[in-house]
């Protein structure tokens, strides 16, 4: 008798992936935490003290949600893409493909582990930030909701990237040329109301704007775009990623020839 859902397999993949994180602890956790601390020192403490408050929040505190989001975004993409690309590259993917495990279970295992890591990372950055600046969280529930949604969505994006890429270079190119610029220009360091009107319009095409804005709203109650729109856009992006993943497994794209 075979179970309707292979929980052992989900657990095996999930723990295996988290173990990989644990093994590369410095690279995967300490690295982003240190670089975020540097941002706080440079932009928050050193330069930020010369800036006026943005929307009633000190610049240092204003930075916190944006920096957390930026790390969560980039780390979700890179961790999830590496997690699935590595077995494809080494060939060990054969085992996952030949195992009695569904597409859904595979994704839950890999994406779940990547998202978990991002959530841990986001939390650590928040704790680190507390050492540099004073900030408050107005809507803790929504803060967690945005953090989880973003981690899951961008881990899915990373998963797709890891399946699409057929070389290490391709694996680097999307984060470098698309994710990082979008993250930097997504309002992590500024409120989009500080931009000229034309660029304000352009910026609305950047999905990261909605994430950062919604996340910042959960801290300080102020946002660049309505919070409902932020939530809707995040959900939409999640649905698109799920759709692509579903298509990948249905067609066997780059997994089964």
């Amino acid at each position: 008798m075979t179970a309707a859902i292979n929980l052992h397999a989900i657990k095996a993949i999930y723990l295996f992936e988290l173990a990989r994180t644990w093994r590369t602890l410095f690279q995967s956790i300490a690295g982003p935490v240190i670089s975020t601390s540097l941002y706080f020192i440079v932009f928050g403490a050193a330069i930020g003290s010369r800036f006026t408050a943005v929307e009633g929040v000190s610049y240092g505190a204003f930075l916190v949600p944006g920096l957390v989001m930026m790390s969560v975004l980039t780390e979700s993409v890179s961790n999830a893409s590496f997690g699935i690309y590595m077995p494809r590259y080494s060939g060990t993917i054969y085992e996952v493909l030949s195992a009695p495990i569904s597409a859904f279970e595979t994704v839950v295992g890999y994406v779940g582990a990547a998202a978990t890591k991002s959530i841990i990372l986001g939390t650590l950055i928040l704790l680190t930030a507390r050492l540099f600046v004073d900030f408050s969280i107005a809507h803790p529930f929504w803060m967690v909701a945005f953090l989880v949604l973003t981690s899951v969505t961008f881990s899915l994006l990373g998963f797709i990237l890891g399946i699409w890429a057929d070389g290490w270079e391709k694996l680097q190119i999307v984060p470098l040329l698309i994710v990082t610029p979008l993250a930097f220009l997504g309002g992590s360091f500024y409120s989009i109301s500080m931009l000229p009107p034309f660029w304000q319009k352009v910026t609305l095409f950047n999905p990261v704007v909605y994430l950062v804005s919604g996340f910042r709203w959960s801290f300080y109650g102020t946002a660049d775009v309505p919070v409902a729109l932020s939530l809707a856009m995040t959900a939409l992006f999640l649905v698109i990623c799920l759709g692509v993943v579903w298509w990948i497994f249905r067609t066997g794209y780059k997994l089964k020839n």
């Binding site: 397999a9 095996a12 080494s90 060990t92 195992a99």
Partner: peptide, 29 residues
Amino acid sequence: IGLVPQELTTEAFESVWATVSFSRGLFGK
């Protein structure tokens, strides 16, 4: 079904114990 493919493809950075235990879980045991 258990499969031993032709090419030597292994999780290079894992311990023998971890990689073998992983396979068992993957197959739902």
